[in-house]
């Protein structure tokens, strides 16, 4: 069964990706950052994220509490990912001075079922908690966010995974 067919409980990130998305949130503070997570589904496991791609936040009218990625930019990100044999596996954004929990806005605007939504709280310009939520369900009507464990590995080599740090995110 692939990651596309079942509820994924883990999200594996390389340390470089993990640090990059947190740094992005610090750089754009007090505005929200956003970007896409690229990777592959792993048989018997879950998404393995090997790259994070920064995207512009088009909500310049309210960037401190909103983000949006231009569909045109997403098309380009998806096209380049495809060339590299990768898929868009999820997205990340920051919550400046706000907990790393999904908001009603996040939920209402979430449409990538089976994908991960990673949120980093940035408190006073410093990245604190990073959590991930799987958009589970099969339709817009029954979709829901489920907390995921974030596993940070030093490289994207599966054999090295056990030597990495494991970070567990918890629900509020």
């Amino acid at each position: 069964m692939s990651a596309l067919q079942r509820a994924v409980s883990d999200l594996r990130l390389t340390r470089a990706v993990y640090e990059a998305i947190r740094a992005h949130g610090e750089e754009t503070y007090p505005h929200e950052c956003c970007g896409a997570l690229l990777g592959n589904s792993v048989q018997g496991s879950s998404w393995r994220i090997v790259a994070a791609v920064r995207a512009g936040n088009t909500r310049t009218d309210s960037a401190h509490n909103r983000y949006q990625i231009s569909p045109a930019e997403l098309v380009k990100i998806e096209r380049e990912a495809r060339r590299d044999g990768l898929s868009i596996a999820g997205f990340y954004h920051s919550h400046p001075d706000h907990p790393a929990q999904w908001s009603q806005t996040d939920f209402a605007e979430a449409h990538w079922l089976g994908c991960s939504y990673v949120i980093t709280a940035v408190d006073l310009g410093k990245a604190t908690v990073t959590n991930s939520f799987l958009l589970a369900g099969t339709t817009e009507e029954d979709k829901r966010f489920e907390p995921q464990k974030i596993e940070v590995v030093e490289t994207d080599e599966p054999t090295r995974a056990s030597s990495g740090a494991r970070l567990e995110s918890k629900e509020a």
Partner: peptide, 18 residues
């Protein structure tokens, strides 16, 4: 391409540090 957006949506947030 499904759309992607969100945010804290918090009311009254100023965006000022802290």
């Amino acid at each position: 391409i499904p759309s992607i957006a969100g945010g804290t949506g918090r009311p009254g947030g100023t965006g000022r540090p802290g």
